[in-house]
Amino acid sequence: MNLSKGFIVLVLLGAFVAVFIQFSNFSLFSLIGYDEHKSNYPGDYPPISFTCPSLPPLERPARNVYELRPQDIKVAMALGDSITAGFGIMGLHKDPILDLYEYRGKSFSIGGDVGANTIASWLRNYNKDLVGMSVGSHAGEVCYGPICPPDQYHPDKDVLNAAQSGAMIPNLVKHELRYLLEQLKKNPKIDMENDWKLLTVFAGANDVCLGCSGHVPYLTADDYEKHMTELMEEIHNNIPKVFVNYILLFNVSQVYDVSMKSEYCRIVHRVLGIECVCVFEGGEKTRVEIGELTRQYNDRAVEIAKKFAGKYDDFAVVIQPCIADGTAATLTPEVVSKVDCFHPSLLMHELMTKVMWNCMLTPSSEKDSTFNYSAPLKCPTNETLLYTN
């Protein structure tokens, strides 16, 4: 990776400041007198729960990825950043150290805590022996560009959730996939050659948060396409029988629109704006730039998926566009964590679960980018597919 010295300094400084800010959050909250038990945020959202009936056993397992149904999935996996790692999900605590935790058991795509509303937990209704779900919580694991300290993973809790807080696109193939492959091979419950696997990939927010200038190395759309294509090729070459759930990135600048509705969040961002410089420090110009870079990333993601479409019987890369739409900006501040008014709250993770579940069970020609959390929950039958087209 050829990085300019200036960019390395920028990344190192950014990582240091980000960690320092997280560890000093409790002082800010003490100063403004914030009560962790007080809602502060209005909002009216439908309760999220899994209400689908059980299904009879399948007559036969899927013979190829184009016949794959929710009941066929035996292994859940995830690659991503702090969103998938579950940072800040549970908001503020009386013990400020807990504010720094990743609540992996509640992560929308792969959390496995009892009672959690996650994609993996809902899949478990059709396969009680589902393997791979992350559980519980622990202090944050950080991988930020070239800064990826070794031996941070907690395999007993992370399981097959390889996401790392701060992760950028190059980290997925160079760091996270390596962990995932190690754990797949070690787990005696996994039949590597025969078990169908669901891998959710959701990343890019940290890249666009630094990429608004358009001149930062390895953050351009061309570099995004290069790294993500390499990632998909490595997944295909090393993991048999896998359905890649490739989630398009939402416009991170929408978080500005949401958080500015709250006086509390406006105070937070005056202190913590560096968490996403292109959203909170650069003004409207950089928010427009971050939106354009997000659009470019998503356009390239669609092209990457096309490269693999219909080529293999045991591998598919499927675009899930259903959280990308700008209507998410109409949400209330309840959807962001009270830790930093930036990361998704537990409510947002549950809304994402429902939207993405419906998206996965919708044919590609009928998917759209609307973040429609009010739509009825789709319940699969024995004929319902994890659609590849």
Score class of each variant (00 low, 15 high):
residue 143 C to T: 01
residue 24 S to Q: 14
residue 8 I to K: 11
residue 162 A to D: 07
residue 349 H to T: 13
residue 350 E to L: 04
residue 59 E to N: 12
residue 369 S to Y: 08
residue 157 K to N: 02
residue 127 N to C: 08
residue 342 F to N: 13
residue 216 V to F: 09
residue 61 P to L: 06
residue 94 K to Y: 11
residue 16 F to T: 15
residue 75 V to D: 03
residue 135 V to W: 02
residue 45 Y to V: 06
residue 7 F to C: 12
residue 222 D to L: 06
residue 5 K to G: 09
residue 190 I to F: 06
residue 128 K to I: 12
residue 255 V to P: 07
residue 74 K to I: 09
residue 371 F to D: 05
residue 208 V to D: 07
residue 229 T to V: 07
residue 246 Y to K: 02
residue 39 S to T: 15
residue 36 E to M: 07
residue 289 E to S: 13
residue 98 L to W: 13
residue 75 V to G: 02
residue 167 A to L: 08
residue 180 L to D: 02
residue 210 L to S: 04
residue 237 N to Q: 15
residue 304 I to R: 02
residue 287 R to N: 08
residue 161 N to H: 01
residue 271 V to T: 11
residue 248 L to R: 10
residue 28 L to N: 10
residue 55 L to H: 10
residue 244 V to T: 05
residue 35 D to N: 14
residue 12 L to C: 12
residue 132 G to K: 05
residue 260 M to R: 15
residue 48 I to S: 03
residue 244 V to Q: 00
residue 24 S to K: 11
residue 271 V to L: 09
residue 382 N to D: 04
residue 368 D to S: 13
residue 71 Q to I: 05
residue 52 C to I: 09
residue 270 R to W: 11
residue 92 L to M: 11
residue 69 R to C: 06
residue 16 F to C: 09
residue 13 L to E: 14
residue 361 L to R: 03
residue 95 D to V: 12
residue 42 P to R: 07
residue 51 T to I: 12
residue 287 R to L: 04
residue 130 L to A: 09
residue 110 I to L: 05
residue 29 F to N: 08
residue 214 G to K: 09
residue 75 V to E: 02
residue 183 Q to I: 10
residue 337 S to M: 02
residue 312 Y to W: 05
residue 44 D to R: 10
residue 132 G to H: 09
residue 51 T to H: 10
residue 333 P to F: 03
residue 246 Y to W: 01
residue 234 E to Q: 12
residue 66 Y to H: 13
residue 345 S to E: 03
residue 175 H to D: 14
residue 348 M to K: 09
residue 225 E to W: 10
residue 13 L to M: 13
residue 386 L to A: 05
residue 47 P to F: 00
residue 77 M to L: 13
residue 40 N to F: 14
residue 247 I to H: 05
residue 54 S to K: 05
residue 76 A to G: 04
residue 111 G to M: 01
residue 15 A to D: 15
residue 182 E to T: 15
residue 159 V to Q: 12
residue 273 G to E: 08
residue 2 N to F: 06
residue 317 V to P: 02
residue 371 F to N: 04
residue 270 R to A: 14
residue 58 L to W: 01
residue 30 S to E: 15
residue 367 K to N: 08
residue 7 F to M: 12
residue 98 L to H: 13
residue 324 A to M: 00
residue 296 Q to R: 15
residue 81 D to K: 01
residue 175 H to N: 14
residue 36 E to D: 05
residue 307 K to I: 05
residue 97 I to W: 10
residue 189 K to C: 07
residue 63 R to Q: 12
residue 166 G to V: 14
residue 118 T to C: 02
residue 332 T to E: 14
residue 90 M to N: 15
residue 29 F to A: 00
residue 25 N to C: 03
residue 388 T to I: 06
residue 49 S to M: 03
residue 262 S to F: 10
residue 333 P to E: 07
residue 233 E to N: 11
residue 122 W to L: 03
residue 211 G to C: 04
residue 21 I to K: 08
residue 376 P to R: 00
residue 99 D to Q: 10
residue 389 N to H: 14
residue 150 P to K: 02
residue 72 D to C: 11
residue 137 S to E: 13
residue 59 E to R: 11
residue 384 T to Q: 03
residue 200 T to P: 05
residue 368 D to C: 07
residue 380 P to K: 00
residue 347 L to P: 00
residue 193 E to P: 00
residue 366 E to D: 11
residue 370 T to L: 14
residue 378 K to S: 10
residue 273 G to S: 10
residue 258 V to S: 08
residue 88 G to S: 09
residue 223 D to N: 10
residue 11 V to Q: 12
residue 5 K to D: 15
residue 374 S to M: 06
residue 176 E to F: 06
